[in-house]
Amino acid sequence: MYLPPLQPSGREREFKKYSDLQRYQVIIGHLMDGLTHREMDERFLGLDSEESKGYQSMGILHYLGLKKAFKSVFKGFTLEQMFEELKSQKGYENIVAVLLEIDIGEYNAMEDIKAEEAEDGNFVYEGKERYYYGKKYERDASNRRKAIEFHGVNCSVCGFNFESVYGERGRDFIEVHHLKPLSTLDEPVMVNPKTDLIPVCSNCHRMIHRRAEQVLSPDQLRQFMKNR
Rank of each mutant, 00 (worst) to 15 (best):
E84G: 11
E85Y: 06
E85L: 11
K87D: 11
K87G: 03
S88E: 12
S88A: 15
S88W: 02
Q89T: 10
Q89C: 12
Q89G: 01
Q89L: 10
K90D: 13
K90R: 15
G91P: 13
G91C: 12
Y92R: 09
Y92M: 12
N94S: 14
I95E: 07
I95Q: 09
I95F: 10
V96D: 12
V96F: 14
V96L: 14
V96E: 13
V98C: 09
V98Q: 14
V98D: 02
V98E: 15
V98H: 06
V98P: 03
L99I: 00
L99S: 02
L99E: 01
L100E: 15
E101P: 00
E101K: 15
E101Q: 15
E101Y: 02
D103S: 11
I104A: 13
I104W: 14
I104P: 03
I104D: 13
G105R: 14
G105L: 11
G105N: 14
E106L: 10
E106I: 15
Y107M: 05
Y107N: 03
Y107H: 10
N108G: 01
N108R: 15
A109H: 09
A109K: 07
M110N: 06
M110T: 04
M110P: 00
M110D: 05
E111D: 11
E111M: 15
E111H: 07
E111K: 15
D112S: 08
D112E: 11
D112Y: 09
D112N: 12
K114L: 11
K114N: 08
K114D: 09
K114F: 07
A115S: 12
A115R: 15
A115M: 12
E116L: 12
E117A: 12
A118W: 04
A118M: 09
E119F: 10
D120R: 14
D120Q: 10
D120F: 08
N122T: 14
N122W: 04
F123Q: 06
F123W: 07
Y125P: 13
G127S: 07
G127L: 04
E129N: 06
R130N: 01
R130M: 08
R130C: 01
R130P: 00
R130H: 07
R130L: 10
Y131C: 00
Y131K: 13
Y132H: 08
Y133W: 01
Y133L: 06
G134V: 12
G134L: 08
K135C: 00
K136N: 04
K136A: 08
K136T: 14
E138F: 07
R139L: 11
R139W: 11
D140H: 11
A141D: 04
A141T: 05
S142D: 05
S142F: 06
N143C: 05
N143S: 04
N143I: 00
N143M: 00
N143Y: 04
R145E: 09
E149F: 01
E149N: 04
E149H: 06
E149S: 09
H151P: 00
G152N: 04
V153E: 02
V153A: 00
N154M: 00
S156H: 08
S156G: 01
V157D: 02
C158S: 02
G159E: 00
F160G: 03
F160S: 03
F160H: 09
F160M: 02
F162W: 09
E163C: 04
S164W: 01
V165E: 09
V165L: 07
V165Q: 08
V165K: 13
Y166C: 03
Y166V: 07
G167Q: 11
G167C: 10
G167Y: 13
E168Q: 12
E168I: 15
R169I: 14
